[in-house]
């Protein structure tokens, strides 16, 4: 059996006295869609920020295609094809749509030896990204603060999917969205999956993961408490794990982690 596309092993992270993650492991195959669920403060966002290079773990390792990687920096994770759509979109309100999409990886050209932002190329490229996604914004030259919430999300999605990603992480992508926008997000996830891109969705809305996902992972208080295939579980089963933090099936077949 070949190594999975992504493996996180024994990840731990504390913030001062708070243990956000303790010894969490995760495996993900290319083109699969994983739903990461759990109560507030379970550590979902922290785990994904570590994967995206926005936080450093205290211990544990990350392997891509079986090879250890060290994401000291969000740019390193993005260079490895891991993109994250943050819960608050992580957009700079005063910058334009294009400036946000290319932030940190601008296209430049050389004028008399000076590296100058190539604004027209970047604007054209971001228009192509929106066209390819079937998403709309009024203009790629508008500041993001002039856009509605749904349009801002479109910018965040375009940024995460427009650079040949292998894995796209979405933190609460359907929170605060209306039904049509939720349908578009599901479509985007399906499109990514069909293109061989793996997706991790953090969501409170289990129905979204039942609709487009392959697997559930349940977290509670910094621990991974359960792992299910979508076609091998139901709402009640998952909600019980989220609330109690105990996997009833695993109790029959105990694993070596008595904490």
């Amino acid at each position: 059996m070949s190594a999975p596309m992504l493996e996180m092993r024994g990840i731990s992270k504390t913030f001062g006295a708070v243990t956000a993650l303790s010894n969490v492991s995760l495996r993900l195959e290319a083109g699969s869609v994983l739903g990461l669920i759990g109560d507030n403060a379970a550590g979902k966002s922290t785990l994904m920020k570590i994967l995206a290079g926005a936080l450093r773990p205290d211990s544990g390792e990350i392997l891509l295609d079986g090879a250890p990687v060290n994401f000291a920096h969000p740019i390193a994770a993005r260079d490895a094809g891991i993109e994250m759509i943050y819960q608050d979109f992580a957009l700079v309100p005063e910058l334009t749509v294009t400036q946000n999409i290319f932030l940190g990886r601008e296209i430049t050209r050389s004028i008399a030896g000076l590296r100058v932002l190539d604004r027209s190329t970047m604007n054209a490229r971001s228009e192509e990204m929106f066209a390819a996604l079937g998403l709309r914004v009024p203009a790629v030259t508008l500041p993001v603060q002039a856009l509605s919430g749904g349009q801002q999300q479109a910018v965040a999605i375009a940024r995460a999917t427009g650079f040949a990603a292998r894995l796209v992480i979405m933190d609460e992508p359907t929170a605060n969205l209306g039904a049509p926008a939720i349908a578009r997000v599901r479509e985007t996830i399906t499109r990514l999956k069909n293109a061989g891109v793996a997706v991790i969705i953090i969501s409170h809305r289990l129905e979204d993961i039942f609709a487009v996902g392959d697997r559930f992972m349940v977290m509670k208080q910094g621990h991974l408490v359960g792992d299910r295939n979508v076609d091998d579980t139901d709402n009640a089963d998952l909600v019980e794990m989220i609330v109690t933090g105990v996997d009833a099936r695993a109790a029959r077949d105990p694993v070596a982690d008595p904490t």
Binding site: G53, A54, P74, L91, V92, Q99, L103
Partner: peptide, 17 residues
């Protein structure tokens, strides 16, 4: 651009590397 991004929303600038 980076100076503007830092002042506009520092956390966004940070997670963008």
């Amino acid at each position: 651009l980076y100076a503007l991004a830092t002042g506009g929303r520092e956390e966004a600038a940070r997670v963008m590397g």
